[in-house]
Simulated assay, not measured.
Amino acid sequence: MTAPGLDLPDTARAYLGEVQQALAFDPQLASQVTAELQDHFSEALERKGGIDDGFLRGFGPPRHYAQAMTHAQAPRQLRASAGLMFTALLLIILTMNLRSAVLPEGGLDGRLSLAHWLDHYCLIVAFVGAVLTLVAARRLGRGQPLLPWLPPRLLPSLTLIALLLSCAGGAVLTWAALAMIAPSAFAAPLLTTAAEMVALALLAADQRRLLFYLRPQR
């Protein structure tokens, strides 16, 4: 955790440990922040010959310092998440078109109209959510909320839910249509459904990490 040859007092080591623990959700950020802290500590050792409690208090409580560093990275992380949303949307649209080209358009039970609705309209909702997430990231970088009543952390979650519902509708349609095609043609629709599931899993993992960046400051 500390740089080789850097002899820190126990209080400084404990401070670094708490900061690193608070940033454990993103090891890369934890490494970057603790390296910057070590630079500050090294400069203090050179100038003052030691690190006292007053010097550490200047950084604030370790968890508050970690949260401030996290919050500073939130706009960049939100933009990256929006980019991943658009990538997932593009993949799902491509797989949807491929599935439509392979599976029969007619003959499906009318009771599947809800699946049709989810497949198409939830995708539109997800696209709007991704656009709003990108706008929110830019406004967050300027210290401005998108809307006073709409926290930025809510947008990625709503977008993911819309994508999940769209893919669920598409999976139901695929399953129903498989009975109408030859087994030799199963590969394409099943692979497209699997690709959608992988995209959603990656997006869900990214958003789980993103929520740490968008936690309200205390």
Rank of each mutant, 00 (worst) to 15 (best):
P75N: 08
P75T: 05
P75W: 07
P75E: 06
P75K: 06
Q77I: 02
Q77T: 02
Q77W: 08
Q77L: 10
L78G: 02
L78C: 03
L78V: 03
R79S: 09
R79M: 09
S81V: 08
S81D: 12
A82M: 04
A82Y: 03
G83A: 03
G83P: 00
L84D: 08
M85A: 15
M85H: 12
F86A: 09
A88L: 00
A88V: 03
A88H: 00
L89E: 05
L89R: 07
L89N: 09
L90D: 14
L90V: 02
L90I: 00
L91W: 00
L91I: 07
L91K: 01
I92A: 04
I92E: 06
I92F: 04
I92N: 04
I93Q: 15
I93C: 03
I93T: 04
I93A: 13
T95N: 03
M96T: 15
N97I: 15
N97Y: 07
N97M: 15
L98A: 14
L98N: 14
L98Q: 14
L98R: 15
L98S: 13
R99T: 15
S100C: 01
L103H: 11
L103E: 12
E105M: 09
E105W: 13
G106F: 04
G107V: 07
L108K: 10
L108F: 06
L108Q: 12
L108Y: 04
D109I: 00
D109F: 04
G110C: 00
R111S: 14
R111C: 03
R111E: 12
R111G: 15
L112G: 04
L112D: 10
S113C: 03
S113F: 11
S113M: 05
S113P: 00
L114T: 09
L114F: 06
